[in-house]
Structure formats: C-alpha cells, structure tokens
Design a protein around this nucleic acid. Sequence first.
DNA 1: GCCGTTATGGACCGCACGGTCAAGAACGCG
DNA 2: CGCGTTCTTGACCGTGCGGTCCATAACGGC
Lengths: 196, 196
Amino acid sequence: MPRPRGFDEEEVLAAACNRFWDNGYAATSLDDLMSATGLGKGSLYGAFGDKHQLFLRALDDYRERFLCGIRSTLLEGTGSPWRRLKAFVMAIAEGASTEQGLRGCLLANSSAELNNRDPEVLARSRSTFAALEDVLAQCLEMARDRGEIAAEADPREQARLLLAVVEGIRFLGQTGIGRAATRQIARSALDAVPKG
Amino acid sequence: MPRPRGFDEEEVLAAACNRFWDNGYAATSLDDLMSATGLGKGSLYGAFGDKHQLFLRALDDYRERFLCGIRSTLLEGTGSPWRRLKAFVMAIAEGASTEQGLRGCLLANSSAELNNRDPEVLARSRSTFAALEDVLAQCLEMARDRGEIAAEADPREQARLLLAVVEGIRFLGQTGIGRAATRQIARSALDAVPKG
DNA sequence: GCCGTTATGGACCGCACGGTCAAGAACGCG
DNA sequence: CGCGTTCTTGACCGTGCGGTCCATAACGGC
C-alpha cells in the first residue's frame, strides 16, 4: 500500500554519524548531511525529525556499536581475560596515535562541545562510560578469579583507573601525542595493576 | 594624539574565553561576544581581527593562565614535590566532579570540537599538554631526588601516565561521574607510582 | 580650544542556516 | 491497471550569522 523507503536507515545513520564526527554538531549543516546521506531534506525530516533528533539517533547508533565491540573484545574474545584486557588497552594506544586518532571518540567530542547545554548528550555520555567501566570491571574480575591479577585487587577500582587511563590516552592521541608515548602509557598502566 | 582604548584587553579576552568555554566555538556568535565583552563589533574587529583570531587569542590567554597556575603549584608550591603532586592530582579529582567540572577544559573542548579542521588549535593543544607533561616530569624528578618515589621510577614515564590519568579524570568528570569515583581514581593512580 | 588620530557604535550586507511545504513520483495491493 | 498511501524532491521562508563600513565621539598634543 504505502511507498517503501528508498534508503537503509542504518546506512544513513552511519553516514550522518561520520559527518558529525568529522565536523562536530554545530558545524555540520543540513546540506552536509544531505550530501553525506544522499537524502533530501524532506526525507531526512520525515524519517528522523530535526537535526538534533537525527544527531541523537546517530549518537545512539555509535554508542551501540562502540559498546558491542568492546563487550565482544573483552568478555568473549579469545585468550584469557587479562590477555584480552592487555590487547584492548594496547589497541587503544595504537589507534589513538594514528590519523584516525585525531578524530577521537564521537561521544567524547560531543560531550566536550555540548555538555553544558545538552542534557540528552550528557546522559548518553555518562551511561556509555559507566557501561565501559562495568565491562572493564567484569573482565578484571574474571582475571582475578583466574589468578591473573592479585586477589586483593579491587576490580571496580582498577576498572575506573583503567577507564581514566584509556580515555586519557584517547584524548592525548587527539592532541597529536606520538605513538611511543601512548604505547608507554598503556604499558605502564597495565604494569600498575597489582599482580599475584 | 590618538584616542586611547576604552577597555582592558585582558578583561575582554577573559570574557570571550568564558563565552567560548561555555558555548563552544561554533555556537558562540558575535552577538554573544559583544554582550559578554561589552564591546561593539567595530571595537572587537579593530582590536582582534575576526572571530577566529579572537578565539585563538582567548585560547592563548587561557593556556598561559593554565600553565602558570600549574607551574606555581607543582614547582614552587609549599611542601615537598611529592606532596605537591598529590595535592595537585587530588585537586583535579575534586574539581572534575563539581558543577564546574562539567565545563571541562577549554583547550580540551576546543580540540574535541575543532581538531580535524583547525591546525592552530591542534598545535596549541599539543604544546600545552606537552608542557604539562614536562612540569609533571620535573616534579617527579625532584621527588625522586628526595627519595619520595623509587629511584628506579622513570619520571618521564610516570609523568605521562599521570598526565593521561589527570586528563581522563577531567573528561570523566565532564560526563558527570561522581566525586567518589574521581577521588578513588586519583588515589589509585598516586598509589601506583613506585615508592621507595 | 582646535586638530589629527583613533576608537566606537550601529546600520547595513550577503549568505547560509534550519526548517516548512506542496506537488508529484513510486510503490503494493486489489 | 488504477487507486491510496507514503516517500521524495526542491523551491521557498524567515532568521541570525560573520563581517564591513562610515559617521561620530573621545582623546592627546600644540
């Protein structure tokens, strides 16, 4: 009966997400979004509402992909929990010091740009990093149960510290710090986790 | 002979700085800046050039105040180097988890918003955090010379790790993490520095 | 007190923004 | 094949943007 959509919603969100990621929220115009997604204004507004709603949808999309990737890496990946955690932190350090690292993280960038004035962005940011903290804590707990880290180590405390380090590395990578430095920070942070 | 300026350049820069800090670069309009500084367009443009140049001036101003405060705290403050460093890191943790903490750091916010497209902002960001790393390393070196931290500890490596932690705390504070968490992260990071 | 010089305020400009809307195209169904 | 429904396209709107400019005001020197 009705005419079906001529586009894939996920693809459009991914394109919009990339655009916001590269340019920031305020600096991304509707024309940018139109050319990035290939859709006309009418379609965009019909499907997503206004610019801000589209942004939040793109943010949610990003958040989901972000957390899914991390969960599968840290909780279901190959190797022992501690091994997975080490690989994760080192991979962050590698990624942060590449050209891609200059983009940073969409959620972090959005927080920095809009935090004070956009409670919806703030809430998404908070819940995402709280979730990341939880995943790190779970992984550390598994590592502790296996004796890979000290029995006295508090997984929650270590998770928070690693969360701060990881976000710090990402940020420093965004400012163009070198790969040697991000690697060393990651290594030092992992060394600082109490072992047996 | 000429008519003198009717305003204090530093005050104007501070006001503009605050405005950019609260709203971000793109979302701060010239009207915002005019009402914040009390100056008309003609005066602003006559004294600083266009919006972008004014922004860079405000950024430089911020950077200078930022680094001066940190240098005086870490290198010339009262108490031993390690004591000063502890107080500094804990103060970051306290500040990050207040209403003020939601504002974050102007340089960090600007980097996140403009990084990919504004090399001048990137350069300022990079040099500022490199300078902060240097100050931390100097302070740690003094602490090591006094035997407050382990002789084997590498001041540069520890400085980088602390830099990442500090920026991570600041970022997490910006996302609204609680004070208990920022305090614990700071404490854990300080505990992780190798002692005697 | 006059004059040269610069600062000032605000009118003004062109543009691009976010958003609306209506006319028509494309599809599934009967 | 034609109908109803929805999607799509693009012209259009008002607004606020960054930036320019000029008439005027305020000052210091003589």
